[in-house]
């Protein structure tokens, strides 16, 4: 490289950057075009007509989009609540108590991610069908939680581990019972990490498709399922608009997470 003149090197670098930018933003640009396209068919390179007709259709009171957005958010909130309810005690125990099988327990939470999804979901769907959980919000929440828990437990455990034990000792020393100490010192100090894990679980649930498809359909329709149906029906406008809607919380929360997830917490993940 050093033998090349600097101008050539500059061009080379610019080219690589442009390719990278295209790989990331190209599909998004296409999404944007489709979201505002009124008429667009082959062989035209660009839409023939732009407009907001499909946006009206998505947001009209009778439209499914708002209803499924509501369902998606509700499921995500329940998934977060369920995951945190498990992750807070589990994460604390993993971080603080000298559990003999710590590594193994952390791995167990990783399993749902490691095993191929489809066979698992097919099985879950069958079991849920037998116990009447298929097509219920609770069923979908449980499937989402199986995914969310790994993030929630790992991050919560890291968040608790990054709280200096002497801070807890100081609290006990000044008269706090174990529970009061946890409530007034440990939990507030672990909170940024817990919020970050809640956001990850929320986003994971919002985007989840496969599990919802097997367990929820046809009674539970989330935004990703709506998008799937729209795409399968050839309605690219509706699916693009839905995709854009799904992007909003993802990008927004990512900015928040970036502020909350400090290096000292990240350093403890998986320890």
């Amino acid at each position: 490289m050093s033998a090349l003149p600097s101008s050539v090197r500059m061009i080379f670098r610019a080219l690589i950057l442009a390719l990278l930018a295209f790989a990331i933003f190209g599909p998004l640009l296409n999404l944007l075009l489709w979201a505002f396209a009124e008429r667009w068919y082959f062989p035209n390179k660009l839409p023939l007509e732009f407009g907001l007709t499909y946006w009206y259709r998505v947001f009209q009171p009778r439209g499914n989009a708002l209803a499924s957005l509501g369902t998606s958010v509700w499921i995500a909130v329940l998934t977060v609540a369920f995951s945190l309810a498990v992750a807070i005690p589990a994460g604390y125990a993993l971080a603080r108590l000298k559990l003999p099988w710590r590594g193994a327990i952390l791995l167990v939470f990783l399993l749902p991610q490691a095993v191929p999804n489809l066979p698992v979901y097919v099985n879950i769907a069958q079991v849920f069908y037998q116990i009447g959980l298929n097509g219920t919000i609770l069923g979908v929440v449980l499937v989402h939680a199986s995914h969310g828990l790994v993030l929630a437990v790992w991050i919560a455990s890291a968040a608790f581990a990054s709280v200096d034990t002497s801070l807890e000792e100081a609290s006990r020393n000044l008269g706090a019972s174990p529970w009061t100490c946890f409530r007034t010192v440990t939990l507030p100090l672990a909170m940024p990490g817990l919020i970050a894990s809640a956001i990850f679980v929320f986003l994971e649930s919002l985007d989840e498709f496969t599990g919802t498809y097997f367990v929820g359909v046809p009674d539970v329709t989330t935004l990703p399922l709506l998008m799937f149906n729209a795409t399968m029906g050839g309605n690219y406008q509706i699916s693009s608009i839905t995709a854009l809607l799904l992007l909003i919380p993802s990008i927004g929360f990512m900015l928040v997470v970036e502020r909350f997830l400090k290096a000292d917490v990240l350093a403890m993940v998986g320890r």
Partner: peptide
Amino acid sequence: TAMMFQSYALW
């Protein structure tokens, strides 16, 4: 008892 810690352990 009340303890002063080496790391101060202030919250």
